[in-house]
Amino acid sequence: MASKLNLKVTSFTDRKRKLKSQLIIGVLLFLALLACFPFLFISAYVISKGIGSLDWAFFTQLPKGPGETGGGMANAILGSGTMVLMCCLLGIPWGMAAGIYLSEYGEGKTARILRFATDLLTSVPSIVVGIFIYGLIVIYFGFSAHAGATALAVIMLPIVARSTEEILKLIPNHIREAGLALGIPRWKVILRILVPGCVGALVTGVMLAIARVAGETAPLLFTALGNQFFADSLSQPTASLPVQIYNFAKSGFPDLERQAWAGALILVLFVFVINFGTRAFIYYKKS
């Protein structure tokens, strides 16, 4: 009798527990869907707002003055492209060298310090990088593409370093040992065997870093500044896509706002193409 009663009680609490579990799993599912929603919302909105303004003029003309209609962002697209390329020239070799060091020679306490410093540099607010470059370059040489590109390189550097390290670490040790056993010097083992072996993955990491840097606005605000026209040289204030979007967005003129959306679409497309591309590449490599 008593045992029967007991059984009933447990089955009741059991059902309650199971119900609670189901409910909470439902809530978790809801949270996951909720977290996906902003991405779909934002990307759909940017595409629908920007696609209408992507015409030939947008890519080939200079911006018109406030209040006028038409014009484009040719100077900003060119400026962004130049600065990102320049930033790659500094950021990629330096970052890769640091990454290779961390992966191939990085052991013990000093390596931990280096890794920590690299992570910290990743998390420095990008606007602070802007101040640093302002004090380092802009004070002496004025606003320029050089300054902007250097600021971007400082942001790119730790990203490339860490991705290079992570990728090289995936290579099994016996490959290094095989190379060394053949009497090949270590630097040749690294540059001729290890790096070519994972060049695809390394490029992937670099592309993601470029995608990240291309959308940076804050470090360019007071290093490259911006320009209504094409810059004559690399030591002049230079327009960039993100800064131009920012300036247009707060201008209050509908036509400039329309172009800001188009600029945002270009940025978003660039970032998406790189991200989708690298995913596809990784997926293709795995299968």
Binding site: A35, C36, F39, I42, A214, T217, A264, L267, V268, V271
Partner: peptide
């Protein structure tokens, strides 16, 4: 796919977030 959609949030440049935040 869900994880991908959430990770992609990190890839959107902050200026685009700003634009969306201001106008939407």
């Amino acid at each position: 796919p869900l994880g991908f959609l959430i990770e992609m949030l990190a890839a959107i440049p902050s200026i685009v977030y700003g634009l969306w935040g201001l106008f939407v």
